[in-house]
Structure formats: C-alpha cells, structure tokens
C-alpha cells in the first residue's frame, strides 16, 4: 500500500503543469475516458438491453432502455434452449478443474521453486518448452485419450482435460513466488520439528494466497471460456454441452431469435463478471506479480 501511495504522489508530479491546472486536466482526461469506456462496453450493454426486449423491439432498434421490458427471453433460453442444464454442466467443469489445478500446481510449484532434486532442471525445461503449444495441436490426441479412458463423451472428460489449459503458466507462477520466500521460514519450521508436508500446508501455502487467488480466477475464466474441447467432446452428446457451446448451438438453430440469444448470453456472463468484481483486486495484483516474476 505504501507503494501505491508513493506512486500516486509521483503521478501528481507528472501531471502538474503550468498552463492548465492539474485538476482541470484530470477532469478533461476523465471525461474523454468515460466516453471511450461507453463505446468500449456498448456491445455488452446492448446485449443486456436486448435480452429484455421482444424480437420485434430489437429489430425496430429503439433506445437502450426497453419501453416494455419482458422476461420471456430468459424463460425461453432457460427452458427451451437448456441453458439451465448447460449452466450446471459448466459449473461442474469449472469447479472440478479449479480444485484439481490449484492443488496440483501449488504442490508442483513448491518443490520446483524451493527444493533441489535430480531432474528439476529437466522438468523446468519441459514446462517452458511446451508453453507455446497451441490447443489446435493437442486437441486430437486429447480427444482420443479421453475416448480410450471411456470419457470421450462425458463431462468428467471435459473437466479433466480442462485442467491442462493454462497448467504450465500456473506452475511457473507458483514456482516463482515460492522461490522468493525467505529460507528462514522453512528453517524455523524444521527447528520446531514440523515435517515437510505440514510446513507446506500450514506455513507456505497460506503465504501464497495472492497466487492461489490468481490461479483460481484464471482457471475459472479459462474453464468458463473454453470452447474447442467442450465442442469436440459434446459433438455427439448435446446433453453435456457447456454454456459456451450451448449458446453457440442455440445461435445455429435459432438465428433470428436475437432476444433468446442475448438472454442466454447474459446468463452466461453474469457469474464470471460477479466473481471478477469480487476478486479483481487480488486478481489484478496476482497478474501483476506474474509479469514482475
């Protein structure tokens, strides 16, 4: 926090200019930014607005505030387009993959960041080497693997394979964070006779809260956003579609139903937006840490 105070004091110096007073200048910048932001989020605002209109009203392109708000679209999306079921499918995939990924990457990052053992460099090398592999490259074998495991058309398959998404970046985040912690922590724990596992669980893990939050938010975003994998797995089994795929399919089937589509879209984005608003401070700090590291 001291840093923030310092930088805000610093930015005041940047702004202070003789001609226009800094206050006026900041007002002008704020007004400009406000205009830019209005345009920036206009598509999303339009989407929410359209979801409360009848299709006739949307095509008539009246103003953003619906003259007669209707909730039909939501009922139609939830019941007929199965958005309700897709919502819980997505929730399952997201929660499951977040739990698995957070635990696995924290453990792996901890030993990679703090311990020396044979093969450590090799594992690091493998991780960095695979960081750039695009999903298009791995999707076919991943699908085949899931089919072999009998999960080729199951939500468990989607959930498990979703853990691979940003895995490498998370491990590197944890490793970087843990490696910067002072050695005294572990030494003190050792003196008190605390074992390796309990040191990790009770001392180190609680200290890595910023990274844990970042990983949770990033993995949630990834799982909620993921499209290629759920699309491939659910091609033959529409019942287990996730929201992204479900809304996409809805578009294919009812292209003229803009009201239904925007309602389904709004249902899909509300949970992630709310999560982000609650956790954004941690999340942004964590992301920032990722770049500094």
């Amino acid at each position: 926090m001291a840093l923030e105070a310092a930088s805000s004091a610093a930015s005041e110096y940047v702004i202070r200019q003789p001609l226009i007073t800094p206050r006026v200048r900041r007002w002008i910048v704020s007004a400009l930014l406000a205009a830019v932001c209005c345009i920036w989020i206009y598509p999303l605002v339009w989407m929410v607005s359209a979801s409360f209109k009848t299709n006739a009203a949307i095509f008539a392109s009246e103003g953003l505030i619906p003259s007669q708000p209707v909730f039909d679209n939501y009922l139609r999306a939830w019941n007929e387009a199965n958005i309700g079921a897709y919502f819980f499918n997505t929730l399952f995939v997201t929660v499951g993959s977040v739990l698995l990924v957070t635990i696995a990457t924290a453990m792996m990052g901890y030993v990679l960041g703090r311990r020396k053992f044979l093969g450590r460099g090799f594992i690091f090398g493998l991780l960095v080497f695979t960081m750039f592999v695009p999903q298009g490259y791995t999707i076919i074998p991943v699908f085949e693997l899931l089919s072999m495991l009998g999960l080729g058309q199951s939500l468990w398959g989607v959930m498990l394979a979703t853990t691979g998404g940003s895995f490498v970046i998370f491990v590197l985040l944890f490793a970087g964070y843990f490696s910067q912690m002072p050695d005294e922590l572990e030494e003190a724990a050792k003196m008190d006779g605390v074992g390796f596992v309990r040191t990790f669980w009770y001392v180190m893990l609680p200290l890595s809260k910023p990274i844990i939050v970042t990983v949770i938010v990033m993995q949630t975003l990834y799982a909620w956003n993921d499209f290629l994998l759920p699309l491939v797995v659910t091609l033959a089994n529409p019942a287990i579609r996730t929201l992204s795929v479900g809304v996409y399919a809805f578009k294919g089937e009812n292209f003229v139903d803009w009201g239904g589509m925007t309602a389904a879209s709004t249902i899909t984005i509300v949970p992630v937006v709310v999560l982000f608003l609650f956790l954004q401070r941690y999340f942004i700090d964590g992301l920032a840490g990722a770049v500094k590291g």
Binding site: I103, I123, T138, L145, A161
Partner: peptide, 26 residues
C-alpha cells in the same frame, strides 16, 4: 528427494496426460 517426487505426482499426471502425451501422440 522422495518427498519432492511425491509432490510432483499430481501435477506430472496432468502435465503428462494432457500436455506431454498429446505432443508426442500428434
């Protein structure tokens, strides 16, 4: 280093199955 390797297991399973294996299987 046995405990270190033990800690790597969950991560390496995910990494192996969904990142490394697909790389070579492709």
């Amino acid at each position: 280093s046995r405990i270190d390797y033990l800690f790597l297991v969950p991560g390496m399973v995910i990494f192996g199955l969904f990142i490394l294996y697909p790389l070579f299987a492709s």
